[in-house]
Structures are given as structure tokens and as C-alpha cells.
Computed example of a mutant assay.
Amino acid sequence: MTFVALLHAVNLGARRKVPMADLRALLTGLGLREVRTYIQSGNAVFSADPDPALRGRLEAALEAQFGFPVPVTLRTAHGWQEAARGCPAHLRDETVVVAFLRDPPDPERVAALHARDVTPERWEVVGQHLYQTVPDGVRNLRLSAAVIERTLGVGVTVRNERTVQAIAAMLDT
């Protein structure tokens, strides 16, 4: 089975460095197959046997190797392709980012997020993904990953549409 692993908050500053060559070596050393990475923001594609403990194994190995905790969000290739195609039509007229939620959000917490005024941004949760418009640029988001994470109570990592589509293309090869 093919998986996509998204590492949270790596390579953003001087402290949480995870070189992609080291990540590929680590994943290969864990017995994962056909390991590939995409850009420096912690995106890996690999094949592995289905294992409900895979995310925990990855997080433990990453912390042991790099010396700091690295939350991981996993998607199957099928789940990734659904995310790549899942942006609601009414959001597609603007630049969109996708917030990948580690776990399914509680509907009450989604309602609490809806209560926030983040105009001019627009967003929608579809399954374990939050699609969000970026009218004023990523650095100026009112609905930041930290706000999403705090309000929904689930881990979040965000990727831009170009990255989402590039990884989807990697899965097709």
C-alpha cells in the first residue's frame, strides 16, 4: 500500500531541521519501500504494509533520530487523491491551501470554528481536510494552522495547492 507522510513544522527555521536525504534514509531503515520526498517541507511517499501503529512508529523514529518530536499526518494514496480532488467548487476561484487534520474533527468544534469571523478568507471542512482561501497571502491568514489546531483539537499541517497536486502526480507514477 502507498502512503503519504506529512511531517508537521519541520524546516521552517533554524531549529527543527529534517534533511530530506536523512528522512529518506530513516524511512528506508524502518523497512518502508519506494521512499521518495517532495521539497524540503517534510513530505514523503512510500510503500508499506498496512499497520495501525505506523504513525506512532514514524513519530518515535523521527524523535530518536532528530532529537525533537515530529507529529506526522498519514494518508493512503487513495485518501491523498481524494484530498487533491476534494476542494469545494465555491472555493476554487481563489488560491487555496489544504489543512490536513491528523484525526477526524468533532462537529461541535467545527461549529465553533465557523463562529469565528475570518473574512475575507473562506473555508470548508471536508472529511479530514480543511480547504481555505488565501486572499491576503499565507503569512496573513486570520485562520492560521495554530487557530485551526486549537479550535478543532486535532493536529494540523498545511500544504499549498501546488504541493498537494505535485504529490498527487507522484502517486500516479
Rank of each mutant, 00 (worst) to 15 (best):
L91M: 06
L91T: 07
R92P: 04
D93G: 15
D93L: 13
E94C: 11
E94T: 14
T95Y: 00
T95K: 09
T95V: 05
V96K: 08
V96F: 09
V96R: 14
V97Y: 07
V97D: 09
V97L: 07
V97G: 00
V97N: 08
V98M: 09
V98I: 10
V98D: 00
V98N: 01
V98E: 00
V98K: 03
A99Y: 15
A99C: 09
A99T: 06
F100W: 15
F100Y: 15
F100I: 12
L101G: 09
L101K: 06
L101V: 07
R102A: 15
P104Q: 06
P104S: 11
P105I: 00
D106G: 04
D106N: 12
P107L: 03
E108F: 04
E108S: 06
R109F: 02
R109Q: 12
R109S: 09
R109L: 05
R109E: 02
V110K: 00
V110W: 04
A111F: 03
A112R: 15
A112N: 07
A112W: 05
A112K: 11
L113D: 04
L113V: 05
L113G: 03
L113W: 05
L113S: 02
L113R: 04
H114T: 07
H114R: 12
A115V: 12
A115Q: 14
R116C: 03
R116N: 03
D117M: 03
D117W: 01
V118H: 12
V118D: 07
V118F: 11
T119H: 10
T119E: 10
P120R: 12
P120F: 09
E121I: 03
E121W: 05
E121Y: 06
R122G: 05
R122Y: 12
W123N: 00
E124V: 01
V125L: 02
V125R: 01
V126L: 08
V126C: 12
V126W: 14
G127E: 13
G127L: 14
G127P: 08
G127K: 10
Q128E: 15
Q128H: 14
H129I: 00
H129C: 13
H129Q: 14
L130G: 07
L130Q: 12
L130V: 06
L130E: 13
L130N: 11
L130I: 06
L130A: 06
Y131N: 05
Y131R: 05
Q132K: 10
T133M: 10
T133A: 08
T133H: 11
